Amino acid sequence: MSGPPKDFDPESPEKREVAGEAARDRSDFLSLMGHTYRGELGRTTSWRTRIDRTTNWAVVLTASLLTWAFSAETRPHYILLVGMGMLVVFLGIEARRYRIYDVWRSRVRLLEENVFANALDPEGTEQPNWRELLSDDLREPTIKTPPIEAVSRRLARVYTPLLSVLLAAWLIRLTVFGDPTSGPIGAASIGRIPGEVVLGLVGVCYALVIVVTFWPGSRQAKGELQEEDNTEAWR
């Protein structure tokens, strides 16, 4: 395999700034944007797959716990509480993956809004300085979605329904399959922990879940499909 030409000097200004020539040539620039879009779209798809994989684990875990918990009356009710804790762990993993996924998706949406949409219907770009925004983000990639927003989005789309199913199953386990002599509150006890304490802790946790799910703060994740556009412009 032959190496680079002997007269090739990668430190020379002409060779070092070769990519800058594309900024002044329209055909070269549009070609470069096409390759950039495909690369960023590939990264977005890869991280989308990682998010879906975590969601699949959560769904399988929920289904398995429900099947096992109701397979016999002697099954302990707290196994459903353990399942809730595992879902919270999956939620943390998925929220982190979602924040990284949004890095690539933001770039894809920036190109779609300002290059491809304008090529199909030239009404002007969404962000006049989109080239500067994309350049800055390529030079210094940053996570744009706050942790609370990532958790809120994943709760609203996946984990609040799953946690609600486990909560309903747990309450049914206490009321229908619990000891009728002790009642639902007595049946909720775990070892030396009274049922009142267990019910109180579960109630507080689910109240927190509801608050975070409907978090009223402005959304910073860019380009996510939704019924009403309430996302802010690229930051």
Rank of each mutant, 00 (worst) to 15 (best):
M1E: 13
M1K: 07
S2M: 04
G3T: 11
P4R: 12
P5D: 12
P5I: 04
K6F: 09
K6H: 10
D7M: 04
F8H: 08
S12I: 03
S12Q: 06
P13L: 10
E14G: 04
E17I: 05
E17S: 14
V18E: 13
A22V: 05
A23Y: 08
R24V: 12
R24D: 13
R24N: 13
D25H: 14
S27K: 14
S27E: 14
D28A: 14
F29W: 13
S31E: 08
L32P: 02
M33P: 02
G34N: 15
H35N: 10
Y37I: 01
R38T: 15
G39L: 11
L41S: 10
T44C: 06
T44G: 09
R48W: 09
R48P: 05
T49D: 13
I51K: 13
T55R: 12
V60P: 00
L65D: 00
T67F: 07
W68G: 08
W68K: 14
S71N: 11
S71C: 12
T74Y: 01
P76H: 09
H77N: 06
Y78C: 06
I79Y: 11
I79E: 13
I79A: 07
L81D: 08
G83T: 02
G83V: 05
M84W: 02
M84C: 09
G85S: 07
V88M: 12
V89S: 10
V89G: 01
L91K: 00
A95Y: 01
A95L: 09
A95V: 06
R99N: 00
I100R: 04
I100Q: 06
D102R: 10
V103S: 03
S106F: 09
V108W: 00
R109K: 12
R109N: 06
A119E: 13
A119K: 08
D121L: 11
P122C: 06
P122A: 01
G124D: 07
E126S: 13
Q127N: 15
Q127M: 09
N129L: 10
R131C: 08
R131T: 12
S135T: 15
S135V: 02
S135M: 04
D137I: 01
L138E: 03
R139L: 15
P141V: 08
T142E: 14
K144W: 12
P146T: 05
P147M: 07
I148F: 08
I148G: 06
T160C: 02
P161H: 04
P161R: 00
L162A: 05
V165W: 06
L167V: 07
A169P: 08
W170R: 05
W170M: 03
R173T: 04
G178R: 05
P180A: 01
G183T: 04
P184C: 01
G186C: 02
A187M: 01
A187V: 01
S189R: 07
S189W: 00
G191F: 05
G195P: 00
V198D: 01
L199W: 03
V202F: 10
V202S: 04
Y206G: 08
Y206K: 08
A207L: 12
A207F: 12
A207Q: 13
V209N: 05
V209M: 05
V209I: 15
V212D: 06
T213N: 06
F214I: 08
W215M: 02
W215E: 00
W215I: 03
G217T: 00
Q220V: 07
A221I: 06
A221Q: 09
K222F: 05
K222Q: 10
L225E: 12
E227H: 04
E227K: 03
E228I: 12
N230Y: 02
E232T: 15
A233N: 14
R235A: 15
R235C: 08
